[in-house]
Every structure is written in C-alpha cells, then in structure tokens.
C-alpha cells in the first residue's frame, strides 16, 4: 500500500525540547492516530508535515515529495485543522469563502456552505462570536472544501461535547469512504481514536515509542494484575508495570506470557499510561 505521508528519522531541536528520530507512515486509505502526553512532540510533528517548522534532520514526505518541495496545488490536497482556529476571527463565513477561493485552487464554495449548513453555522456571524465547538466546525468545513486527499488534524475534537465530537467523527468516516484518502489525527480523547483509527503512532519525550496497527496492539498487549512476585515471575513478558495499594499490574506481551495467564484487554489509553508512567522490571 502506498503512503500519503512518510516521516523518516525526523529531528527538531528547540530550546529545552528535542524531537528525535520520529518515524511513521500514513498509508493511503487509513487513519493514523498520533498519541502522547502534552509536550511529547505531536504538534511539532504535525507542524513539520505542514511545513510550519524547519526540521533539523530527517525526511518528511507528502504524496511522495519532500514537504518543502510541494507546490501550492499539492499543498491544497492537504486539509489541516490546527490546535487553534487559525482563521480570521473578524470575518464571517461569507468573507471566509471570499478569501479561501483565492487561497485554494480547488476551493468549492457550494461544499463549504453545505458543511456550514449541516453544522448549523450562521453565515453572517463573525467567527469571533462562535463557540469553540463552532470554530472547530468552521476549520473542519474549510479543510474539507478544497479537494483535500489527506487530512492532518491536531486535536480537532478538543473541548467539544460528545454530540459535536460524534458529528465530526461522522464527517471523518465519510471522508474515508474514498480509498485514496488518509487522515493523521492527534487527540487526547483516546475513545475517538479507538473508533476511528487503523494505526496508532505513540510519541513520548519526542521519540516514537511504537507505530502499530490498532488491532495488532490489542493482540500484542494484555494487562496482568497480581502480586509483585507474580509480576516479576513473568520476566521479559512484562513491558512496564505499576505498583498500587492492592498489588501490581503490568502491561504484558501476550506472546511471551504463559498461555493460561489471565490477561485483561489493554486499550490504547492503558498502553499509553503504562509506557509513560510504568516502571521496567529490574
């Protein structure tokens, strides 16, 4: 399967933070969820894909081309929703349409207002008067109205109520009906990612901890609860473990663990928490 986005050994040095050797792909026809705690490097990775930061090293390719070499038409095939609204808040939707038709070569006014109407966004009201949820919907309406084949979404559902989040997820499902399309989405709302994603890329302290198929993660990891001695007895099957008031729990590699060992399902959030907060067996 060809990749819409390829990130290979991405490095970026900031004062006090380094993104180091980040590597993952976003294949055509798939949704990749980018997870990690605050400051893990998710936004910097997304900004590198969109050409907003200059990487210190490594390669970021979109549609098989280095990001810095993309032409305006090719950039127009990427729909972006950044953490903040990033749209002129002094303008209303009609004004935004007037601006966007001169920004994107493939801008579709009909589509934009159709999304806006489906979200019940008033056309004459200035964006600054919108709620956070409405602003996110405007951003998404823009991202979906210029012939994008790849969506790069940084926290698109942050701060939204479950109904609004569900509406946005429905739109993303519709977008993925085309097998050439892809989505890279970062979010702290792991339940959204579990519904939507085919792959998960996990960043921690600026490094890729893993990049795996979501279903494979469930096959690969399980959670074991028991005493510290029982956890220690599992040896190299234990990836990370935590000590609690009533014993220990461990993220365990199913393949390495004894077949008869009772293991609970490990969700994406569990896996992330064990990787970040868990201890390694000495």
């Amino acid at each position: 399967m060809a990749d819409n986005i390829r990130i290979c050994g991405l490095n970026k040095n900031f004062k006090g933070f380094t993104l180091e050797n980040v590597t993952f792909d976003v294949p055509k026809g798939s949704v990749v969820g980018l997870i990690g705690e605050n400051g893990a490097g998710k936004s910097t990775t997304i900004k590198s894909i969109l050409g907003l930061v200059n990487p210190s090293g490594g390669r970021v390719e979109v549609f098989g081309k280095e990001v810095s070499a993309l032409m305006a038409e090719e950039k127009g095939r990427i729909g972006a929703v950044l953490g903040e609204t990033c749209l002129p808040e002094n303008l209303n939707l009609k004004d935004i349409d007037g601006v966007m038709k001169h920004i994107f070569p493939q801008w579709d006014t009909g589509k934009f207002f159709s999304f806006a109407d489906s979200f019940s966004l008033p056309r004459d009201k200035k964006v600054r008067e919108f709620s956070r949820g409405m602003r996110q919907k405007v951003s998404l309406s823009v991202a979906l109205s210029h012939g994008a084949e790849v969506l790069v979404l940084d926290e698109p559902t942050a701060g939204l109520d479950p109904v609004a989040r569900d509406e946005i997820l429905d739109l993303l499902y519709d977008f993925m009906q085309d097998e050439e399309h892809s989505i890279l989405i970062s979010s702290h709302i792991v339940s959204d990612l579990e519904k939507l994603c085919d792959y998960i890329a996990f960043l921690h302290n600026g490094r890729t901890m893993f990049f795996e198929e979501k279903d494979r993660l469930e096959e690969k990891y399980g959670i074991f609860r028991g005493t510290e001695e029982e956890v220690r007895a599992l040896g190299r099957a234990v990836v990370k473990y935590t000590r609690g008031e009533y014993g220990c729990s461990a993220l365990v590699l199913r393949e390495e663990a004894p077949r008869e060992l009772p293991l609970e399902r490990a969700g994406i959030e569990d896996i992330m928490l064990y990787f970040v907060r868990g201890e390694k067996l000495c």
């Binding site: 969109l50 050409g51 907003l52 032409m71 950039k75 990427i78 972006a80 950044l82 990033c86 920004i103």
Partner: peptide
Amino acid sequence: WDKFALASG
C-alpha cells in the same frame, strides 16, 4: 493566520 496560510500552500 500565518500558520494557516503556510499550511494551505
């Protein structure tokens, strides 16, 4: 705006 504009080509 600069972020949006640069991301948009």
